[in-house]
Amino acid sequence: MDLAQYLSVSESHLTLKTSPPPETDRAKTERLEIYKLLVEMSDRVSQRRQSANNFYLSVNTLLVGGSAYLGTLQPRALNVIVISVAGIAICAVWIINILSYKTLNQAKFKVINDLEQRLVEQPFHDEWGQLDPDLDGQRHRPFHQVERVVPWIFMAVYIAQSLAIIPWKAAAAYL
């Protein structure tokens, strides 16, 4: 460590420098490269998130269709209920996955935004200023708020399918 960057020494005085040493071009270049890497990594996380959502959407579409088809066969109740329970479980995992990606993205963008404060331009900060200038969520709703509704819709479909196969008149006779 070079103490000269923090101390000024003269014949009769020892002074602590209050301003940091000037930043080198190398440090600026490294910061910019790290910033670009972080932005690229966050984009990859978003791509993985979209791939995961596509997977869950496909599986649930298959299960809902399969459950509807099996509901036309005999015996139908057990088949539909088993598929519906599996679908609800998959939706629960999907919701956990969405929340996991949300926290991962929040952490990544916190690091990016913190690093961005030390750059000449702050494009992500500026973008959010345009998307939600009042910070009230009215003009722009974050993606996770929209995407987390989809698994709940599938759960409602599974529950409705299960309830639809119950012979309610026969069940009422036992009450």
Results as ranks from 00 to 15, higher is better:
K169R: 10
L7P: 02
L16E: 07
I153T: 04
E147Q: 13
Q161R: 02
F55R: 08
L73G: 06
I159K: 05
S162Q: 03
M41C: 11
T15N: 11
L16Q: 01
L175H: 12
E116D: 05
A52G: 05
D134P: 01
P123K: 03
P20Q: 10
L175G: 13
L70K: 10
P21E: 07
I96E: 09
R31C: 02
L16A: 05
G137N: 03
K102G: 03
A89M: 09
L175K: 10
W168C: 00
V111L: 15
M41L: 13
L70R: 09
G65H: 03
V120C: 09
Q138R: 14
L163K: 04
S42H: 05
S8E: 15
V146T: 10
N113H: 13
F55I: 10
E33R: 14
Q161T: 01
E11G: 10
V157W: 03
L131H: 00
R139S: 14
I95Q: 08
Q5K: 15
F143D: 05
A27E: 11
L62Y: 12
I88H: 03
P20H: 04
P142M: 01
Q130S: 14
I153G: 07
Q106L: 09
I153P: 01
L163S: 00
A171W: 12
A173V: 06
L115M: 13
I159S: 00
P75V: 07
N113E: 14
A171E: 07
S10T: 12
V120Q: 15
N105M: 14
P142C: 01
P20A: 11
G71S: 01
S100Q: 13
P75D: 04
I112F: 03
K28Q: 08
Y158E: 05
D25Y: 01
I153D: 00
K102H: 09
T29I: 12
E40C: 07
E116A: 03
M41G: 05
P75G: 07
V64T: 06
S8K: 15
F124I: 12
H144S: 11
P75K: 00
S19H: 13
P22F: 02
G137Y: 05
I96A: 14
S8H: 12
S51V: 13
S42G: 04
